[in-house]
Amino acid sequence: MRTSTFSLTSLPLFLLLFFFFFFFSLKAITAKNLIPETCKKCVQDDPNLSYKFCVTSLQAAPKSSSSDVRQLGTISMNLIRHNMTSTRQHIKHLLKNTKLDKFLRVYLEDCLDLYSNAIPDIKKALRSYKAKQFRDANVRVSGVCDAPVTCEDGFHEREGLVSPLTKRNNDAVQLSAIALSIINMLGSLGFKLI
């Protein structure tokens, strides 16, 4: 009788290889689908958040495709910081225009102050988040979110005045909504990582 080349001693090696490939292919599928799934949850938390904006923003960040939810939270806060810094620079550039309407200048100066104050706050929020102090991170991101809202509202106080920052302000609010949703997801899990 002929013996099989596949013996019982080969079985553990075969199973090990099978589980190894299965685990890593499953992990790749999970990472690939994590951003859309996270954004679906974020949109459920905040119906004013655009699903497309959420997915596009997170996917644009380097290494986001292999990130877990906690890392996506860090990415979202870094995106807020980048938006705030960029908007602050844009406001400074607009204020260099000597022919700027005097009322527009006043509101832009207010926005510059709001964004300047929000930048250190988002940095503190990120430190709190990394330390798993989700309640503190939530409070700080909520405060940061007030800056673009207050900035945009200021332009609407004067009839006929058009905000040159509407898109940037809206983006900052959307990015803040993403971060707040992720913070709340992690916080509701009893500070566990998912």
Rank of each mutant, 00 (worst) to 15 (best):
L8T: 14
P148Q: 06
D101S: 08
A31M: 12
M1H: 13
E157Y: 08
Y107N: 12
N48I: 05
T9E: 13
P36G: 12
G154F: 04
D68I: 07
I183A: 10
F20T: 10
T150S: 11
N138S: 05
I122A: 03
V144Y: 01
T150A: 05
K123M: 06
S163T: 13
K167H: 10
S181K: 09
Q59A: 10
K32R: 14
K96P: 00
L15W: 04
K96I: 02
I91A: 04
C39K: 02
M84G: 08
N184T: 15
P47T: 13
S57G: 04
P12F: 07
N170S: 14
S163C: 06
D121P: 00
N184S: 12
L72D: 06
V173I: 15
G160Y: 03
R81E: 15
F24Q: 12
C151Y: 01
F18E: 00
L100M: 06
T85E: 14
M84V: 11
A60T: 10
F6E: 10
K63V: 07
I183K: 06
Q71H: 08
C39P: 01
K41I: 10
A61F: 07
K41S: 12
R70L: 06
D121T: 09
P36I: 08
S76Q: 05
L161P: 00
R168W: 03
E37A: 14
E157R: 11
F6A: 13
T87C: 03
S142C: 00
N117Q: 09
N170F: 08
R135L: 10
C151D: 06
Q59L: 11
P148W: 05
F19C: 09
K52G: 09
R70H: 07
T166L: 11
I183G: 04
S86R: 10
T56W: 01
P62E: 12
K40V: 04
R88T: 08
V144G: 02
V139T: 09
S57E: 13
S25T: 15
L104N: 04
Y51F: 12
A125N: 03
N33L: 15
A31G: 09
G190S: 06
Q71D: 11
K132V: 08
F134A: 03
R158G: 00
I194M: 10
D101A: 06
C54G: 03
C151S: 13
G190P: 02
D171Y: 03
N97G: 06
T98Q: 14
D171G: 01
L114N: 14
Q71G: 08
D68A: 05
M185I: 14
L11V: 15
I178S: 01
E37S: 13
P120I: 08
N97I: 05
I35E: 11
S67N: 07
N48P: 01
D46C: 07
T98C: 00
K41L: 12
N48Q: 15
T85D: 12
T56F: 02
G160V: 04
S10N: 15
I178K: 01
L112C: 03
L58V: 03
L72V: 04
L165F: 02
M84N: 08
L26D: 05
R88L: 15
K63Y: 11
